[in-house]
Simulated assay, not measured.
Amino acid sequence: MPAIARPLQKMPWQLRVSLLDRYILREMIRPFVFGFGVFTAIAAVIGTVFYLIRNMVEHNLGILSALQVFFLRLPTFAVLGIPMAMLFGSLLAYSQLSRRSELIAWKSCGVSPLRLVRPALLAGFCALLFTFALNELVAPPMAYRAIQTLEAAIQRPQPSFQTNNIFYRRFAEGQLRQLFFAHRFDGKVMGEVTVVNFEQGQLQEIITAKEAEWQGRAWLFRQGTYHRLRRDRDYDVAETFSERRFAYPRTPLELALETRAPEFMTSREIYHYLQILAESGDAKRLRQWRVQLQEKLSLPFLCLSFALVGAVLGISSPRQGQGRAFGLSVAIIFGYYFGAFIFTAFGEGGAVSPILASWLPKVIVGAIALGMLYHANRH
């Protein structure tokens, strides 16, 4: 019987739990760190290194700038690596305990598999909190800074706003109320603006202007024409103006200013942007961003599901070495992401709801792990 098992029988219950938890957690640290390094490195190579090498060849990107971009992008790949490392760490740790017959010894002392997986769940919960914080506070701003650094280094800076063809539709009570279009935008002033207003489905106003600028509470249109139509589509009012204010929503400006991808935004920023998109009536884009928001919120919970899967597999499967554990982890991860990709496509296409598309794969993994744990606990 292992040395750890003998004193466990003589200690109080609470102390026995603490020692057991700490012992198993200590066994998980080394494979977790190894898996975190390997999986993060793989994600970084696939996601950034090849792209940086191509820019170094095609656009003379300097090695120092490439390294800066690489390290700025690392938190994004670390977010992906933590759940994978939890799977590998728990699987290998419990397999090693099984190989040394320690799991058998603890089971003979009355310790159930349900009790044995508790340290893995504790580690998974801690990883969940860390992943959520990293994905919200660190990864988005650093990833956005990486893109800006890259564009500046290759002398191809991209503006932080949409420069051409700003188009906005506003709906109210299921009816189209306004079309807003601007040919160009310099970050402050929109040029060649056309606004078409509707009332109860009927065309009501047409405003064209050489430029338009947001003035805090309303739009200031300059050098334009104003047309108001009657129900018979004939002009009721037609006039020109040098300057005129219109109390239209600020939404077209907000849409033009926000050009970042979801990975460069926090969930709070995505939620705010969704409120803007909801007014525009762009159903396809709205679905895509809702799926991305749910993906960002649900990803940390994968740490908990993978930790449980690894622990149960380590307890119930044959004894495995590091190579087999790594191979099994890769197979599970590939299967999960393949299924998650399909659900994401369904969510963005409107076949299923964004919440279902993002959360169901994690729930399925957790449900499978719970079923395996129930089976192991009965035998």
Score class of each variant (00 low, 15 high):
residue 5 A to W: 02
residue 9 Q to I: 09
residue 19 L to H: 13
residue 20 L to A: 02
residue 21 D to G: 05
residue 26 R to L: 12
residue 27 E to C: 06
residue 29 I to T: 12
residue 31 P to H: 08
residue 34 F to N: 02
residue 42 I to A: 07
residue 52 L to G: 00
residue 53 I to C: 00
residue 58 E to Y: 09
residue 58 E to C: 01
residue 61 L to M: 09
residue 65 S to A: 15
residue 78 A to W: 04
residue 81 G to K: 05
residue 86 M to T: 10
residue 89 G to V: 07
residue 91 L to P: 00
residue 91 L to S: 01
residue 94 Y to Q: 00
residue 94 Y to W: 05
residue 95 S to W: 04
residue 97 L to V: 00
residue 99 R to M: 06
residue 106 W to S: 00
residue 106 W to L: 15
residue 108 S to N: 06
residue 109 C to K: 10
residue 114 L to Q: 11
residue 114 L to F: 15
residue 119 P to D: 00
residue 123 A to C: 10
residue 123 A to V: 10
residue 124 G to S: 07
residue 125 F to R: 02
residue 131 T to I: 06
residue 132 F to Y: 15
residue 140 P to L: 13
residue 141 P to D: 12
residue 144 Y to W: 12
residue 149 T to S: 10
residue 152 A to E: 12
residue 158 Q to C: 02
residue 159 P to F: 13
residue 160 S to A: 14
residue 161 F to T: 02
residue 163 T to Q: 15
residue 164 N to R: 15
residue 164 N to K: 15
residue 165 N to V: 06
residue 166 I to M: 05
residue 171 F to K: 04
residue 171 F to G: 01
residue 172 A to C: 03
residue 173 E to A: 13
residue 173 E to L: 09
residue 177 R to I: 05
residue 178 Q to L: 14
residue 179 L to K: 04
residue 181 F to V: 10
residue 184 R to G: 09
residue 188 K to I: 09
residue 189 V to D: 08
residue 196 V to Y: 12
residue 196 V to F: 13
residue 198 F to A: 01
residue 200 Q to I: 01
residue 202 Q to D: 06
residue 202 Q to G: 02
residue 206 I to S: 08
residue 211 E to H: 12
residue 215 Q to P: 01
residue 215 Q to T: 10
residue 217 R to L: 10
residue 218 A to D: 11
residue 222 R to L: 11
residue 223 Q to M: 10
residue 224 G to V: 06
residue 225 T to Q: 15
residue 226 Y to H: 14
residue 227 H to K: 13
residue 227 H to G: 01
residue 230 R to S: 09
residue 235 Y to I: 08
residue 237 V to N: 04
residue 237 V to M: 08
residue 238 A to N: 11
residue 239 E to P: 01
residue 240 T to W: 13
residue 241 F to I: 06
residue 245 R to L: 13
residue 246 F to M: 11
residue 253 L to T: 01
residue 253 L to C: 04
residue 255 L to M: 14
residue 255 L to D: 02
residue 257 L to N: 13
residue 258 E to Q: 15
residue 258 E to P: 04
residue 260 R to Y: 11
residue 260 R to I: 07
residue 262 P to A: 05
residue 265 M to D: 03
residue 266 T to Q: 13
residue 268 R to N: 09
residue 269 E to T: 05
residue 273 Y to L: 05
residue 274 L to F: 09
residue 274 L to M: 10
residue 278 A to Q: 12
residue 283 A to M: 12
residue 284 K to A: 14
residue 286 L to S: 08
residue 287 R to D: 04
residue 288 Q to A: 13
residue 290 R to D: 07
residue 293 L to S: 03
residue 294 Q to Y: 15
residue 295 E to N: 14
residue 296 K to D: 05
residue 299 L to N: 11
residue 299 L to F: 15
residue 300 P to R: 13
residue 304 L to I: 15
residue 306 F to W: 09
residue 307 A to V: 07
residue 308 L to G: 03
residue 309 V to P: 03
residue 309 V to Q: 04
residue 310 G to N: 06
residue 313 L to Y: 09
residue 315 I to K: 00
residue 316 S to F: 06
residue 317 S to P: 00
residue 320 Q to E: 04
residue 321 G to K: 03
residue 327 G to C: 04
residue 331 A to E: 03
residue 338 F to Y: 11
residue 338 F to K: 01
residue 340 A to M: 06
residue 343 F to Q: 00
residue 344 T to I: 05
residue 346 F to V: 01
residue 346 F to S: 01
residue 346 F to A: 07
residue 347 G to V: 05
residue 347 G to N: 02
residue 351 A to I: 13
residue 352 V to G: 02
residue 359 W to Y: 08
residue 363 V to A: 15
residue 369 A to I: 05
residue 370 L to Y: 11
